[in-house]
Simulated scan of single mutants.
Amino acid sequence: MPIHAGDTLGNKAMPPISKVAFSGTDVDQLSEILSTPRSPISVTTLDKSPVAFRCSFLSAGAVSVADCSYEGTFVAKREAPGEKIDIFLPMQGNAVFNYPGKPIESTPARAAIFEGESDNGALLIGPRRHLALFIDKPKVLSLLSHMLDRTIRGKINIDPYIDLTSNSGLALMHLAEQLHRGLDENGALRRSPLALASLCDAVTYLILENCQHGYSDALAQSVPSPVPRHVKRAIDFMHEHIAEPISLAEIAVATNVSIRTLQQGFRQFRNTTPMSHLRELRLAAVHCDLLDSRLKSSISDVAAKWGFTHLGRFAAEYKKRFGHLPSEALKA
């Protein structure tokens, strides 16, 4: 099951927090600001009308929040799929996003949410101001997997609209404001990793529980049977020995069941095998290390730390899991 760094390490260490702020009138600069290394965005004006912008981006691990204001009318086009769930919470002005089959209008009463599709271009009509939340897809899939007690991968097909006049919409806006205020310079969240982790999780759970998506019906069903004790013990054992060369037999011995019973438990309650689950944990641990700007280790050192000794197979598995090569994660 996908996990984030706090789960991997069994603690609540403060994630690296960064702040960048920009203002200007150059659309090329705006393109660079809105782009990521793996998902570039191009900005073009309509009728050569002047554009002005003021943006503040605050990042804390798997969740980032931005406060952006724009003047003028322009088109922003995503050139390649992104790796985040993007939520736009407008406070002023209008924007129209491309969406498969229909345009999505974003106004102060209506937020828009997307899974980073490459064709999610947008027409922004200023003056426009919005808060934006960006949540790593692995985090969303991890929490959804925990909620459903089975491994979830790929798209969740979330409905692109959020009603900001509803109780859940108002709560989401409030949480986004808290996150931006708390992560800003001298903000309280910079001194409290537990509060920060709880707030980031609250934002993600609020979206999963209140926005319509492909797993909403499954979440609405009665609570499934609890995961067997031996499966939970096996997962705990994996966390405790995640960087060690443990075998399937050793996991079975640690949980006091046969290998066959252990495999059946993982197939039924985690939709995977024990060793595949262990590799998922290790890949997620590698991903967190590569994204941590404080670490200066090479890719081979990070891979070896988490038990991956064959770099070719590791790179292929990493790309299949996260959609890009490990070397690209270092550039993010």
Rank of each mutant, 00 (worst) to 15 (best):
H287T: 08
K84Y: 11
A122T: 14
C200A: 07
L123H: 14
V63T: 09
S297Y: 01
K296S: 12
A111G: 10
I85K: 05
L175C: 05
L196I: 03
S168L: 01
Y205G: 15
G121M: 09
R270A: 14
R153F: 14
S106V: 15
P15V: 04
A195R: 02
S327D: 14
K84W: 05
L34G: 04
L330I: 07
V63M: 02
K139F: 12
F114R: 11
Y99G: 00
F266Q: 00
G323F: 01
G214T: 04
D136I: 07
A109H: 05
L89H: 04
A62E: 12
R153Q: 15
L325Q: 06
L9Q: 05
E115M: 00
L330K: 09
G312F: 04
A80V: 07
M238A: 13
R294S: 15
A252D: 00
K305M: 08
N157C: 12
T165K: 07
L144Y: 00
I299R: 03
T273D: 08
L206C: 07
D26N: 13
S258K: 10
P224A: 13
S192Y: 06
L133Y: 05
H180G: 06
P193D: 05
H213R: 02
K19S: 15
E244P: 00
G126V: 10
I162F: 03
E209C: 08
H230N: 15
P160H: 09
K155R: 14
M173Q: 14
K84E: 10
D201G: 08
S276H: 14
S106C: 14
A66S: 10
V257I: 02
T8P: 01
V96M: 11
M147Q: 02
F308E: 03
H287I: 00
M238N: 06
A303T: 01
A21W: 02
P50W: 03
Q268I: 11
N186W: 09
L172E: 01
G93R: 03
F266Y: 00
T36D: 11
P160A: 10
H230G: 04
K155Q: 15
L219H: 02
P224W: 02
H4G: 06
H239I: 04
L262K: 11
F322L: 04
A132L: 10
L170G: 00
L219Q: 02
P108E: 04
E32D: 14
I246T: 09
T8I: 12
I3N: 01
G61P: 01
I125D: 00
S225H: 10
P103W: 08
S31Q: 03
P108R: 05
P16A: 14
L189V: 08
S69G: 08
L133K: 11
R110M: 12
A62F: 02
R294D: 12
C200G: 04
R54P: 00
P37W: 05
Y215W: 09
Q29G: 06
P160W: 07
S69H: 12
G154T: 09
Q268K: 15
K12G: 00
M91Y: 13
Q221Y: 00
I41P: 01
G154R: 01
K77F: 11
L290K: 07
K320R: 12
S35P: 02
I87Y: 07
F134A: 14
L89G: 01
A252T: 03
S222M: 15
N94F: 13
S106D: 12
S142Q: 04
